[in-house]
């Protein structure tokens, strides 16, 4: 969409007029990191919607599950082996990697079960999809409260990812850089997967016309399950990264991020991965700039952007309007 880039650039540069450059840089890094974390959640949501026309309200609960599974892995390995407190970069990275792997695997499994048992019988019925995935959200969130307890808990952060680098007097937090790199990698990964693999080809075809894909001999439900599992894993990745970023886990964290993801997906256009990157960056950056300039207005800024975009383009920046 032609207006997307100029709007993003304007949004990126305009705050520079009010904020001192060094602070601006710090805020920008934080904003990009936040944007990328939200993108991880939104990307799965938008992929699932694009292919199966399902708005998955359980996506937020998968986010929380990812966070809690990863948290348990970090906690266990740290208590037994001290991997988080170890000064070794290798052990720290391995710890994070294992946590990510566990979170994504569990969420992918949960996603598969959800798709098979709960979503599949209601394909094509929007209202029942919303209601049933909402019910699943309640159950999954309550299970978290039963297994891990209802209160907030502190996530131990591997030493390597704590603190900040001081580059030419600009303070750059370490973990946000990790988050940005990861976000970019996931985005490029999704694009390449869709563009270059046969599965990606069939998924893209299915997004356009699922019926035709079927009469060409492809079992589209297998692709539905796969994409649902992949989207769930992405939500879990987002949840875990957010848990490390904010150094805490809460049972309700998924619900709040689901709303962020909704806003992002509406801004970007339902079904578009690139749209959700741009939307997520807009939301992340705007939140950080506004929180610095006018702290009270920060919570409203996402809604304001969403309303503005809907005014300009009712289907979102990259929406097909189907």
């Amino acid at each position: 969409m032609k207006i997307a880039l100029p709007t993003l650039l304007l949004g990126l540069l305009l705050p520079l007029a009010f904020i001192e450059p060094r602070v601006y840089l710090t805020l920008t890094v934080a904003g990009l990191a936040m944007g990328m974390l939200i993108f991880l959640v939104a990307s799965g949501l938008t992929l699932i919607f694009g292919l199966m026309d399902v708005l998955n309200f359980a996506h937020g609960a998968l986010f929380s599950w990812g966070a809690y599974i990863g948290f348990s892995v970090v906690l266990a390995l740290n208590q037994r082996l001290g991997w988080a407190e170890s000064p070794s970069v290798g052990l720290n990275a391995l710890l994070l990697l294992l946590a990510i792997l566990a979170a994504m695997l569990v969420a992918a499994g949960l996603g598969m079960v959800l798709e098979r048992v709960i979503v599949r019988p209601v394909y094509g019925k929007h209202m029942f999809q919303i209601l049933i995935t909402l019910g699943a959200t309640i159950v999954m969130e309550e299970l978290i409260r039963i297994v891990w307890g209802p209160n907030d808990q502190v996530v131990p952060i591997p030493l390597t990812f704590q603190g900040s680098w001081d580059i030419a007097d600009v303070i750059v937090l370490r973990f946000p850089i990790v988050a940005i790199v990861l976000g970019v990698a996931v985005y490029l990964g999704i694009l390449l997967l869709l563009k270059l693999t046969r599965v990606g080809l069939i998924v893209r075809a299915g997004v356009e016309n699922g019926e035709m894909v079927q009469v060409m001999g492809h079992n589209i439900y297998r692709y539905f399950t796969a994409v649902f599992a992949a989207g769930s894993a992405l939500a879990a990745l987002g949840g875990l990264m957010w848990a490390v970023f904010s150094q805490s886990v809460r049972p309700a964290m998924g619900g709040e991020h689901l709303i962020f993801a909704f806003i992002v997906v509406i801004i970007g256009g339902l079904g578009s991965v690139t749209g959700s990157v741009i939307g997520a960056l807009m939301v992340g950056l705007a939140y950080n700039y506004v929180a610095f300039l006018v702290p009270k207005a920060a919570i409203g800024v996402n809604m304001a952007i969403m309303v503005l975009i809907l005014l300009l383009r009712p289907t979102g920046l990259f929406g097909a309007g189907k």
């Binding site: 029942f128 049933i132 019910g135 959200t137 309640i138 969130e141 309550e142 039963i146």
Partner: peptide, 26 residues
């Protein structure tokens, strides 16, 4: 503790009821 929590978290049953009603009793 977990069994106690299981009886406390009535929202869990609410959620299950929710899904069952939508499925079997739409």
């Amino acid at each position: 503790e977990i069994l106690q929590r299981l009886t406390e978290r009535w929202l869990l049953y609410f959620g299950i009821l929710f899904i069952l009603v939508v499925f079997f009793f739409p």
